[in-house]
Each structure stands twice: as C-alpha cells, then as structure tokens.
C-alpha cells in the first residue's frame, strides 16, 4: 500500500496552507500535542506502574485501568488530530523520513495493542484471575511502545 498520494494531497491541503502561513497557529497546535502527550503519558504510566505494583498499591488495578482508559482515548484523539496538522506543514519531507515511519509503525502497533488486547483483557476480567506475567508484560510493553512513539516523534524535529 503506497501512501504517497495521501501525503501529496496533505501537502497541498488547506491544513498545509494554514500550518505554513501562520507560525502562531502551528505553535498553539504543537502545544496541544504536547499537553495531550502529557495526558496520554500520565494515564499510561499510572496504569502500567500500577500493574507492576509501583504506584497506588492500595487502589485495585482494575479501578486504575477503568479510570484512565477514557482519558487515554481523549488524549489519543487530540494527539492524532494535532499531529495530522503538524504533518501537513512538512508532508513531503515526512514521507521520506525514516523516523517518521518508525513513529507511525509504533503508533499503529500501540493502537492495536491498547484496543484489541490490553483493554479487552484488563476491563473484562478480574485481574486476580489473569496470569501475573501477562499483566507485567502488558505493562512493560505498553510503556515501551508509547515511549518509542513519543521519543521518535521528538527525534523527527532533530533529523
């Protein structure tokens, strides 16, 4: 599947015009990206560190996962929308940037992981009945994925 046409379209879209012409708008959107990143990171860290028994040990891990999942989704939506806007400004450059594709691969893997595995397992079943190693591995791989997505995103700016 070649995504080049999408990037070519994005490059000439109204989003690209706005992002290129108004530096101030770009910065505001970028700030929302960072704020949503903080929120996403916060919900991921609290959930995963709870699964590993590092924080909030006296709050059941089910409760922590239930309360963070909605805000995770809110943050993810803001991140994707604000990310799309930022991508529009440099669409063609990104298409040929390896780090960007590393980030997108991580993001896709992260979304599948959260909505197809992590969430169904952790929301539907009593955590006491789940294999403790499954819980630990979920926590470690979740933090690994989102760290990689965030860090490789920052690296796009330097490459």
């Amino acid at each position: 599947m070649d995504l080049l046409p999408f990037f070519e379209w994005l490059d000439t879209s109204i989003l690209a015009d706005i992002a290129k012409a108004y530096g101030g708008v770009f910065v505001v959107v970028q700030t929302f990206h960072l704020l949503a990143l903080s929120l996403l990171g916060g919900t991921v860290l609290v959930g995963d560190l709870r699964l590993l028994g590092v924080v909030m040990k006296d709050v059941p891990s089910q409760v922590v996962i239930q309360n963070t999942q909605k805000w995770f989704s809110v943050a993810l939506v803001i991140l994707i929308l604000s990310g799309l806007f930022q991508a529009a400004a440099v669409a063609m450059k990104l298409y040929y940037n390896e780090m960007f594709w590393a980030k997108m691969t991580g993001l896709a893997a992260g979304i599948v992981f959260v909505y197809a595995i992590r969430r169904p397992l952790l929301l539907r079943f009593d955590h006491d009945t789940i294999n403790p190693w499954a819980l630990r591995l979920i926590a470690v791989s979740s933090m690994t994925i989102w760290f990689t997505v965030a860090a490789s995103g920052r690296w796009i700016g330097f490459s």
Binding site: L37, S38, G41, G42, A150, R154
Partner: peptide, 11 residues
C-alpha cells in the same frame, strides 16, 4: 518527555 511524568501525574 518528562512532561509525561510531571504534567501527566498533575493532570
């Protein structure tokens, strides 16, 4: 990236 720790917890 530490924003996710500091601001994440604060949020």
């Amino acid at each position: 990236l530490t924003l996710t720790v500091f601001l994440g917890m604060l949020f």
